[in-house]
Design a protein around this nucleic acid. Structure first.
Lengths: 220, 220, 220, 220
DNA sequence: ATGTAAGCGAGACGGTACGTCACGTCTTCAC
DNA sequence: GTGAAGACGTGACGTACCGTCTCGCTTACAT
């Protein structure tokens, strides 16, 4: 008969701790202390830090977000970007999301859970917005949907989670417009990756190994 | 008179620890043990974990990466994407970069150092590739260079560091081509954010608050 | 709520460490390791190495030893010498006692504790055995009890703790007999220190300063 | 060609350190610092802390002390006691001697060295004073010389090194007289350890095991 | 109404890491 | 070659948390 108020307090405490110190430094002890609760109360609910975080994060992600369906690719995209913007502006999410994504690179269970959450949640940008656009004939059926998702989400995620600089007014609509145009380009369909001004064979020699003695160059 | 070989061993150990456990869990003791060295050897070089990581990361980032200068925006972009791809494919970088970027959201010193590294290192994608393209007349002088950088880097970073799925053959050239086209679009210059198919004023009301009880929705 | 079994393990470990390396080299870390216990378990019980040793040694010393009371000075002495012999033959005591006594010359707290332990424990050879002998008329009431204690304990302690050579059979009874006779001698009562063959004032000139340049001669 | 002044300074420093912290805590570093000298200066002279201490202590002990030879056992003893008193009153010796003797119980090399020093130095109380007394007929040839040494040295050592209480005036002459009488007693010759008031065989049962659970009783 | 089960906090336990200090060893320079 | 200087690994310091585990206390359901 676990007490619900304690469970809620723990959930909130976990999110705050995740934001403040990240998954790596998150400790059961701090969570319990923050929730004003004994450590046993935590272990009675989840067997480990990982289980605890996975459970809480999964549950949160399930909070359905409204999927846009305006009938036009451009409008769908603009609304989607606004949603993403809104979510990632949230204090907690802005800290927790990149942290968990980074942790996912180390911990397969986290990666899996996040993937599952994304998938269950949206079924997805790709499958819905793009799918509908294809059905409407706005996009070519041959489009590489993975690459399309990169184009749609990538720039905004980079700006919000990495650069973390303010968006100038009009940024989101402009990004929506540019992305829409790019997606419509026939370049997005794999068969003919022929660039406008072809660089015959530029690649390998131009790029030096770039790997220093012992470590890896840190650059993005 | 610090011994160089020990310093190198420590540098390598720090990178490996960063990759394995992340900045949050990185401990001086483990670094020293991994490098086969006493803790004192670490403290003789850096006063704290933060100073150590900042120094090592800065130094690594300084390893100049060759900046493309082919004379055409498209070719520059393609080469740039190849470089980024190459760097982020590296085992260590793939783990360390997102981790440090997430940590940067918490630790201003890390944020600052990473920014400085990026800036010093490239002076930058924006200032060079874009600048030269503008000089050549390939891009409008009024272009929002911040947004342009988001467009260039965002999709590939998302794919390599977040989605972490394999790139299909032809991905990079296609991305370069699409991005080039998008940058050239008159949409990228702020004055006239008039989209092709304008969405009159859809924004705010469409998107619900989306903030659950205590936490934030986890979505990207 | 400290666990008694752990306290016991620590006590034993302290004694063994004291025997092996002495008070000077005794370290909390080794004690804990030897007891198969965390350092915290030690610090939860005693605040410092000194407090720990003092407590343990005090408690051990309190283990009442049976005080002889046979009705005759000689028998009391013989039994006392047997007790002392038995105690100092014990592996641990043989190492720990001289070590702590030497340390006591440096550390007043140790000196005090040892004195207190001795006093509380026996109330003492002087006050009891000698006292009863005086009451019985076996010894003169004017006897210098301090000197008497020196006579009683000194030879055996020297033999067991310093010379550390085996006792020949009959040693203890003989020592008891000789000591008894000496104590009974009228020489032991201060008023008349007149020796049999008095050496009027031989002392000073015969004995050279004997102090070398920088150190002191090591002799006993 | 090691510099003599530095060697002397080191010798003095070693003795002072021995007195202040004892052999266990004595460290090359402190010795060198105290002598105002580099650590290398020490290691060039002695290979280890043990070798250093052994060498210095041996050399000091060799400083011949004048052996009394007055022609009477009592006078010899009184002078001997005065010498011992004088030596053990010396600040350094009072600390160093018991410390090294305690350490000798752990370290065979120290034990051996001290024994050798004593032997070489005196050839000895036993062999000389007692020997001469036997030759003069003052003592029985059958006397247990080891036990005799215990009787001679033990009480004073106990008083000076263990009890460490002031000697009342007349203490040494009285002790010399009592000891002389005791040595002359026919009890000191093994064959007949018959005591005045014989306690047939009281020993074993009277004395309880006295060994507590885990440690050893600390008593002297 | 009482007994039993379970949630709860408190906190002792063995660990790990902290940042510092002292040490014995070894190497590098100045004389 | 003698000396000082100091970097090196080791190990201990006393503290702080951590995850685990064992306690009494209390609450609440079932008898």
């Amino acid at each position: 008969m676990l007490r619900g108020d304690i469970t809620s307090a723990l959930r909130a405490a976990v999110m705050q701790e995740l934001a403040e110190v990240g998954y790596g430094r998150l400790s059961i002890e701090r969570v319990a202390r923050r929730a004003g609760v004994g450590k046993t109360a935590v272990y009675r609910r989840w067997g480990s830090k990982l289980a605890m975080v996975l459970d809480i994060v999964s549950e949160l992600a399930v909070h359905k977000m409204p999927l846009p369906d305006t009938g036009s690719l451009h409008d769908d995209l603009e609304i989607l970007l606004q949603i993403v913007n809104q979510v990632l502006q949230h204090r907690l999410a802005a800290q927790v999301v990149p942290d968990l994504l980074a942790e996912a690179a180390r911990n397969p269970q986290i990666a899996e859970t996040l993937q599952a959450a994304l998938r269950a949640n949206q079924r997805n940008v790709a499958d819905l917005i793009l799918g509908r656009a294809i059905e409407r004939g706005e996009l070519s059926p041959g489009i590489d949907t993975d690459a399309a998702v990169d184009l749609i989400i990538g720039p905004l995620y980079w700006r919000l989670a990495i650069s973390r600089t303010r968006l100038p007014s009009g940024y989101l609509p402009r990004l929506a417009a540019v992305t829409t145009a790019a997606l419509r380009s026939e370049l997005m369909s794999p068969p003919v990756p022929k660039p406008a001004a072809p660089a015959p064979k530029p690649a390998a020699p131009v790029v030096a190994p770039a790997t220093p003695a012992d470590g890896a160059p840190v650059t993005a």
